[in-house]
Design a protein around this nucleic acid. Structure first.
Length: 98
DNA sequence: CCAAGGGCCGTCT
DNA sequence: GAGACGGCCCTTG
């Protein structure tokens, strides 16, 4: 319970127009290889609206999955100024680090 | 308490 | 650059 809340908080600190990776997020909350856990939390997250889950991408630069559909995620991101091509983000500098 | 899943990652062919 | 494996951590049933 604590962890997941921590994750959401971190996520909320990600500014619009930027994204973060599951790995970085995991590290930020203290778990080194808990990327999968993050995904699981996001999917089951109780606050899908107030939490910008769509700003989380794979460390490889791919968009990754999304509970409501990956296209929706992609759409939102591009709307926030992120350039996406073939399901991948082009500017990795847009990745926000804690 | 045990078992299984998941929006993943790094490494090797 | 693309596909295949194995592994790690949390949450939920």
């Amino acid at each position: 319970m604590k962890l997941e809340h921590r994750v959401y908080e971190k996520l909320l600190k990600v500014p619009k127009g930027k994204v973060t990776t599951y790995s970085e997020l995991a590290k930020a909350v203290g778990i080194k290889n808990g990327q999968r856990s993050i995904g699981q939390m996001m999917k089951k997250n109780p606050f899908p609206v107030i939490v910008p889950c769509h700003r989380v991408i794979l460390s490889t630069g791919k968009i990754g999955g999304y509970a409501w559909g990956e296209k929706v995620k992609t759409n939102m991101l591009s709307k926030e100024g992120i350039t996406i091509k073939k399901g991948k983000i082009l500017d990795k500098d847009r990745i926000f680090r804690f």
